[in-house]
C-alpha cells in the first residue's frame, strides 16, 4: 500500500479539483468540495479499493490526506 497511490485514489473521488492538486499534506477540509458526503465517499473508496473499513472517527480525527492514509495502513 503506497501513499502516492492513495493520494491519487483520494483525488479521483473529487469532481471539481484540478488534477495533481492534492498532496499528502493537503488539509482535506480546506477543499471546497469537502462535505460529510465526501467523507463517506472516501470511506467507501477505502473499503472497495483497499478492503479496509475506515470509520467516521478516523476521518474526524485526521487533518491531512496522509493522516487518513496512516489510519488506513494500521487497519
Amino acid at each position: 500500500m503506497e501513499l502516492a497511490q492513495f493520494v491519487k485514489d483520494f483525488e479521483l473521488q473529487f469532481e471539481e479539483v484540478e488534477p495533481n492538486s492534492i498532496t499528502p499534506d493537503t488539509i482535506f477540509r480546506d477543499i471546497d468540495e469537502w462535505s460529510s458526503l465526501m467523507a463517506l465517499v472516501i470511506i467507501a473508496m477505502a473499503d472497495e479499493n483497499y478492503n479496509v473499513k475506515l470509520t467516521g472517527d478516523d476521518i474526524r480525527n485526521s487533518k491531512t490526506v496522509k493522516d487518513i492514509f496512516e489510519k488506513l495502513k494500521v487497519k
Partner: peptide, 13 residues
C-alpha cells in the same frame, strides 16, 4: 455512479 456506489456501501455496512 457516485450515488450508486454510496448506496451499495450503506446497504451492506
Amino acid at each position: 455512479n457516485r450515488i450508486s456506489k454510496l448506496l451499495n456501501y450503506l446497504e451492506k455496512s
